[in-house]
């Protein structure tokens, strides 16, 4: 029974195996990146960047048809361009980062929607918005895995400056010039993670893979390392359970995975040992010291 429900789909169908590998690779990068976004109070930044990716993905689609690789590279290009432009504007003018990014992502979104509505059909738009992990081909899967690997390696390289830039930017400035570049590189990693995610989950929901596990993880661990591990684990579990749910119910894979992640978030929020609601409601005697 359990075998039929949980294991058989992956043994019988190659597309399920592929989808699983793709989603697991994605979760490995999305957890850590999402954790930093949450801790930097940039939880909604992922949403803005997800919209930014649209015109590039649409252009890739128009030029090369339904090629995940072309759409990925297109999305990556527009995403990185917007991060870079917004970064430059933040440094050169009095606009704060959120404002300058809002400016560029809205322009980018309008261009993207224009391209899709002029040249494509509504089906295409739905595809870009909601993704289709079950149609992941070999090159796209390799690209996704490569991007996740690269993201993790680069994050490891900038880890220390990035943490200090979050906690005590003034101190970091006094000992090193690495803070600004670390922040910009981190934003680029957000873009790569989102782009890897949009193949599988669509531009709208790929944010969910970054943010939901990270936010849920806050209720399981106190220190940064623990939160990152918890977020990654929650992401992995969501991917696996989401695909199984999608297989048995006929739900699209993207929403199914994010719904599982959402359920895990609600569970963590209620029962998490670090500040979960239930624990807060229980009467607790205070300590001596």
């Amino acid at each position: 029974m359990i075998f039929d429900a949980l294991i058989a789909p992956f043994i019988e169908f190659e597309f399920m195996r592929r989808a699983l590998v793709g989603c697991l690779a994605l979760s490995l990068a999305a957890g850590p990146v999402g954790t930093f976004l949450m801790l930097r109070r940039m939880s909604l930044f992922g949403d803005a960047m997800a919209h930014t990716i649209l015109p590039g993905a649409a252009l890739g689609y128009l030029a090369f048809g339904l090629s995940l690789t072309a759409m990925t590279i297109g999305g990556l290009a527009t995403g990185l361009l917007v991060v870079l432009l917004a970064g430059l504007v933040t440094r050169a003018t009095r606009l704060r980062e959120d404002a300058s990014i809002a400016g560029f992502y809205l322009i980018s979104l309008a261009i993207g929607v224009s391209i899709v509505s002029l040249k494509g059909s509504n089906v295409d738009l739905l595809r870009v918005l909601f993704g289709s992990i079950l149609a992941l081909d070999d090159p796209a899967m390799m690209l996704l895995a490569a991007m996740s690997t690269g993201t993790l390696l680069v994050l490891a390289l900038i880890f220390r400056p990035l943490v200090l830039e979050c906690v005590d930017p003034a101190f970091l400035r006094s000992v090193s010039r690495a803070g600004g570049p670390a922040h910009l590189i981190f934003l680029a990693l957000v873009v790569t993670t989102l782009v890897s995610g949009f193949n599988a989950l669509g531009t709208l929901l790929s944010v969910g893979m970054m943010m939901l596990p990270a936010i849920a993880a806050r209720f399981w661990a106190v220190e940064l390392t623990g939160i990152i591990f918890a977020a990654t684990l929650i992401g992995l579990v969501s991917s696996l359970c989401g695909l199984i749910l999608s297989f048995h119910t006929g739900l699209p894979s993207g929403p199914a995975i994010i719904l599982v992640a959402g359920a895990l978030y609600l569970l963590s929020l209620s029962f998490g040992p670090q500040g979960g609601l239930i624990l807060k409601l229980l009467p607790q005697r205070h300590l001596e010291a």
Binding site: L39, V163, C166, V167, D168, P169, A170, F171, S174, A221, V222, E223, L224, I227
Partner: peptide
């Protein structure tokens, strides 16, 4: 070594 006024620190960051 430069110690700015301590308000600049993000004390909610979990390290």
């Amino acid at each position: 070594a430069y110690l700015p006024q301590s308000a600049a620190l993000d004390r909610s960051f979990p390290i």
